[in-house]
Structures are given as C-alpha cells and as structure tokens.
Amino acid sequence: MEAPIGPRSCAGLGYAGNMHTGQTTRGTLLGRIRDGTDEVAAWRELDSTYREMLLRFCRSRGLQHADAEDVVQQVFARLVNGLKKFEYDRSRGRFRDYVYRCVRNAISDWVGCQSRTVAGVVGLCGVVKEEQEWVDSFHQEWVDHHFRCAIAEVEKTADPQSIEVLRATLAGRTVKEVAVTLGMQEMAVYKVQQRMRDRLRARIAEQVAEEDSE
C-alpha cells in the first residue's frame, strides 16, 4: 500500500552517501546499466531515487495521478534504454538535464497520444505551457527532491532533540516557539539549526556531486 504523494522516507535511496571517503561503493548507475549486469536493480534504484520527484513534476504539469504514474514508467523506460544506447553524454549536459529531456518528451508524447485517441480530454490545456515555466518547475522539483532526500538521511543519524528542532523549524515555527515547545534556550535552538543546516548542506553536496558523476 502506498500513501498519496507526500514526504516519505528516502530509505532505499540511490545515493551512496559516502563522499566523505572520496569513493563511491556502487559505481555509477550509468556504468551498471551499460554493462547490463543488473538492470532490475538499476531500475529499482531509479525508481527509489527519482520517482517522487517525477510524479510531483508531472502533477505540477496538470496530469492526473494515474496518468502521472504512466508517464513516470515511460520516463524510466526511456532512461534505461537511452543510457544503454549512449544517448546520454556527460560532456553535453548533466544527468538531471537528461532526465528533464526524458520527462519532457514523455509528457509531450502522452499528450499527443491522448489527443489522438481520446476526444476531449479535460485539463490538457493546462499541460502545454511556456517552455521556461517547464524548466523552472523542473528545477524547483529538483531542489525539493534533494532537500527531501537529505532531510531523510540526516534524520537517520541525528539525535532526537536535533530532529525535533529540525521538524519544528520545517513546520514553520519561529525560534522562540521552538525553544518554548522543547524547553530549550533560544541560542541553543539557533545552534542546532545551524548544525542541521551544515549537515543538510554537506549531504546535498554529496548527492549532487554523485548525480553529476553519472
């Protein structure tokens, strides 16, 4: 059973998360897909890493949930096939740009398919908008995606009080409110927030670097 789209655990996340050692244990996703040894695992990894981001992006483009699911399946198929066929070239753009192109094309194809076969699909007029808006929206989803993954990862190792502070902050509470609720000094809350910020930043740096190494 799955919940509707929303913040969820990034357990099983594709990012290896050990950049501090200067190594990655998994090798690049790309490398593994290309050598063809572990396609199913690669697919799963794509799914656990990018699924929610892509679903949210599709929904922001006006697709219904079920259609968004279909499109995301298509995107993964395109990614795996494209990576195999060396469509993706790191010297021509980053991995996330490639993902963007795949999802953009998948949505376009889906719109075309729907308008050919289904008369009068409601809400499609909202799908095709200005290209720049698409790009911005995707970028926003990308940022959100890294934040969500980093928060999930950081929460795994942080102490309970730090987690409480982080959650209260993300719920929109002021420092003062957090301090009162958790019975802490305001200064202490600030310090925890800074520590959490640094850890999130470090974690996101790892994730982005890893993504760029694809």
Partner: peptide, 16 residues
C-alpha cells in the same frame, strides 16, 4: 534554506 526545505517537505498534491 529553511523556507525551501519547508516547501520540499509539504504534503504531495492530492490524488484528485
């Protein structure tokens, strides 16, 4: 960063 992380953590779009 707090505002952006907050945005990222918002619940998903309803299923409709």
């Amino acid at each position: 960063w707090q505002a952006r992380a907050r945005r990222a953590s918002r619940p998903g779009v309803p299923l409709g």
